[in-house]
């Protein structure tokens, strides 16, 4: 991506577009991938509220698949899960 020149930037170092972190795919930083066992999940939402990258999405009170475009593989969800339904797998296994 070509970075903008100074004339194209907003004043004061402002970021005037909200939610633009969505465009920044940090998923490729990952060395471990969280694997979710839907069967064991009770949808307690602890992983959803704890994920530092908001990579766990939910709809109508149900946890959805992990957003792998943004998940950095920190493993907090696996650590915190009360039913141990999330396990961390080496990213190299998926190549």
């Amino acid at each position: 991506m070509k970075k903008p020149g100074w004339k194209e930037l907003p004043d004061g170092g402002r970021i005037i577009k909200a939610g633009n972190a969505d465009e920044y795919n940090t998923g490729d930083w990952r060395t471990f991938r969280p694997m979710w066992d839907q069967g064991k999940c009770t949808h307690c939402m602890i992983c959803w509220i704890t994920c530092p990258d908001s990579s766990i999405h939910a709809k109508d009170g149900k946890r959805l698949e992990t957003d792998l475009d943004h998940c950095k593989g920190c493993g907090i969800c696996a650590e915190i899960c009360p039913t141990k339904c999330i396990t961390m797998k080496k990213e190299s296994d998926f190549i």
């Binding site: 970075k3 100074w6 970021i15 577009k17 909200a18």
Partner: peptide, 18 residues
């Protein structure tokens, strides 16, 4: 909007120029 985000070697100079 976001005020005062982290701004490293790839943007800070442009912001100062502005």
């Amino acid at each position: 909007t976001t005020v005062g985000p982290l701004d490293l070697f790839d943007y800070y100079f442009e912001h100062k120029r502005k």
